[in-house]
């Protein structure tokens, strides 16, 4: 279901007027991407959906903070990233791995390789939450460095070196996994 109201600008205008149609357009456009970002940070679908719900419920109130200095997607990624880190800090489970729950770590689906997905979830779990977020947005969502610099409030050079280290860790983990060789 999608309420067609045209552009992103129009949806923001409607949202600022307190209209549900504006919120719905933004939800339809960005909720899946934000959910996956949150999932990669929190390693839990349930918690990721909680954050997405929280973000969109609060969006009418916080949208005034969006001044168009970046794209709406970039701004939403940043808000989601901060909300996820806050949740981890509140739960005192930052960097906590949830290895024991394999079902939770691997999303279910029909198209993509379940083995690859599960492997990625486990490989990502080796990293800390912020690095998981960074690596997912770069490699999973294809967010350019310029936008990542806005999201993480870090210079591009710093992000590059962090990404390089993160890739090495993931690669190292994957190479240890004999099943990866079979899959890839």
């Amino acid at each position: 279901m999608r309420l067609w109201i045209g552009s992103e600008g129009k949806s923001l205008e409607l949202l600022r007027e307190g209209r549900l149609e504006g919120l719905h357009w933004i939800y339809e456009t960005y909720s899946a991407r934000i959910l996956n970002q949150c999932y990669r940070i929190l390693l839990s679908r349930e918690q990721a959906e909680d954050v997405v719900q929280d973000l969109f419920v609060r969006l009418p109130a916080i949208v005034a903070e969006f001044r168009g200095e970046s794209s709406l997607a970039t701004w939403l990624y940043r808000v989601a990233h901060n909300m996820c880190l806050n949740r981890l800090q509140q739960g005192k489970n930052r960097n906590k791995l949830e290895w024991e729950n394999a079902d939770e770590l691997a999303p279910r689906g029909q198209n993509a390789s379940v083995e690859l997905t599960e492997l990625l979830s486990k490989a990502m779990a080796v990293l800390d939450a912020e690095t998981r977020s960074l690596l997912w947005l770069k490699e999973g969502e294809g967010v350019p460095l310029k936008d990542l610099s806005v999201i993480f409030k870090l210079p591009e050079g710093t992000l590059k070196s962090r990404l390089s280290r993160a890739r090495d860790k993931v690669k190292e983990y994957l190479e240890k996994e004999s099943s990866f060789e079979k899959v890839a």
């Binding site: 719905h24 996956n36 959906e49 689906g109 390789s113 999973g140």
Partner: peptide, 28 residues
């Protein structure tokens, strides 16, 4: 490649209903 080929989660159908109910916004 594993990042690109990894499965993406889709929001559950109930999620929007919960958001719409909790947002307090109304259709114009």
């Amino acid at each position: 490649r594993i990042f690109r080929e990894a499965e993406r989660l889709q929001p559950s159908p109930a999620l929007w209903r919960r958001i719409a109910a909790a947002s307090g916004l109304e259709s114009g």
